[in-house]
């Protein structure tokens, strides 16, 4: 975690609606998958995950909270659009998967509008 984590900004819109944004760290991972559409047509997309350590958080983010990252801190090749490395990309937590050992993987959905 200390080696591979990248800085992120948590906006606890759901878990603490009145609280301010706060910085945190997490490890981004990307899985390439195909979503099957009508007529068994495949569409290529990705599953974006953020791994965190509970001990790093005073208040743990939950589903519906937002997490933002600089584009340059995301895994290489994730963003195919032309975007500045310093631009912020917003994600919403869609699901959390605790690993039972003090860590958790968040399944993220990109909430930044089409670039």
């Amino acid at each position: 975690m200390a080696t591979f984590s990248k800085p992120v900004v948590v906006t606890p819109k759901k878990s603490q609606p009145t609280a301010a944004q706060f910085p945190a760290r997490g490890v981004w991972t990307i899985d390439n998958i195909s979503v099957i559409m009508e007529n068994d047509a495949p569409m290529s997309t990705r599953v974006v995950k953020l791994g965190i350590k509970y001990a790093d958080f005073k208040f743990v983010p939950m589903q519906g909270d937002f997490i933002s990252s600089k584009a340059g801190d995301l895994p290489l090749g994730y963003l195919v659009e032309k975007i500045s490395p310093s631009a912020m990309v917003d994600f919403i937590i869609d699901n959390d998967q605790p690993d039972g050992q003090g860590g958790c993987t968040y399944i993220m959905k990109r909430s930044t509008a089409r670039l």
Partner: peptide
């Protein structure tokens, strides 16, 4: 046709298939 694989930066996508 359902091929080739649709890329996610090509949405919204209209498909007209003979099912």
């Amino acid at each position: 046709f359902p091929v080739p694989t649709l890329q996610s930066d090509l949405l919204p996508c209209l498909s007209v298939y003979l099912m």
